[in-house]
Every structure is written in C-alpha cells, then in structure tokens.
Amino acid sequence: MPAYLIAQVKITDDAWVADYAACTHEIAAKHGGRYLLRSANIETIEGAAPDTTLIALIEFPSADAARAFAEDAEYAPLAQARQAGSEGHFWVIDDTDVAGSIPYLPKG
C-alpha cells in the first residue's frame, strides 16, 4: 500500500540546504520514493498559515519503505544537518479513507 512522507520544514540556517537538495532525492529513490513536490509556494485557503518555509511530499511503496529512507545511514548526516538548521515535522501517512466512502481508496 502506498505511503506518503510529508515534511514541513522551517529553515533557520540555510547552510545545509544545497547538499540536502542535491542528494536526498537519490536516497529516497533507493527506497522506492518519488518526490511529488518540494515547494515553498504555500497558499493558505483555510485556517492559520503554517510557520514553514517549505513542504515536501514523497510517495513510497509502503510505510516501511518510508521509514527505511528516514533511517538510511547515507541519509543520517543530511538529516542531522537539516535538524540543526531548521525546525520541522515529518509524517508518514497511508492512502486509506478513514470514512470508507471513496470507492477508489482502501478503507481505513
């Protein structure tokens, strides 16, 4: 079942960004990940605007694959640099429908 890693990042020191941006997608791909977006173009339609610089969405073949990416030894120094130079949240979410009424999604 597909799973999606959602990253919300507020950059506080951009020294890490160039290396991270250049290398991370290849590490994600190693685990079957495919970036769907990595964007700073965030428009708030409802609710409070997030205090964030960018949001990334990466599709993985499973939640296990997403976790394997996050725990990859090659990714570890990039993650540490990101954590030192930003505030953020990473979530893994599957493609289920909690209400079970959308016919093309698995029931959650």
Rank of each mutant, 00 (worst) to 15 (best):
P106W: 11
D51H: 13
S62W: 06
I27D: 12
A65Y: 10
D19P: 13
P2D: 12
P61S: 06
P61E: 07
A49E: 06
V9C: 05
P61I: 10
A21I: 04
F69D: 02
Y104Q: 12
A49V: 02
D14T: 03
A63N: 01
K107S: 08
A65I: 01
R82E: 14
H31Q: 05
A79F: 08
T44V: 10
G88Q: 09
E74T: 12
A18D: 15
E74C: 00
A29I: 07
I45A: 13
A73R: 11
E46W: 01
L78R: 10
H31W: 11
L54G: 09
W91F: 15
D72P: 02
T52D: 05
A84W: 02
A70L: 15
I58M: 10
A79Q: 12
P50A: 02
L54H: 14
A68H: 10
A3N: 08
I27C: 07
D95V: 02
I27E: 06
F60Y: 15
H89E: 12
A70Q: 00
A66P: 09
A70G: 04
Q80I: 03
H25D: 14
L36Q: 11
P103C: 00
A73Q: 04
V9R: 04
H25S: 14
A66W: 05
A7M: 07
A40Y: 00
E43P: 00
Y75F: 15
I93D: 01
A28Y: 05
G47I: 08
H31M: 09
H31F: 10
S101V: 14
E71K: 11
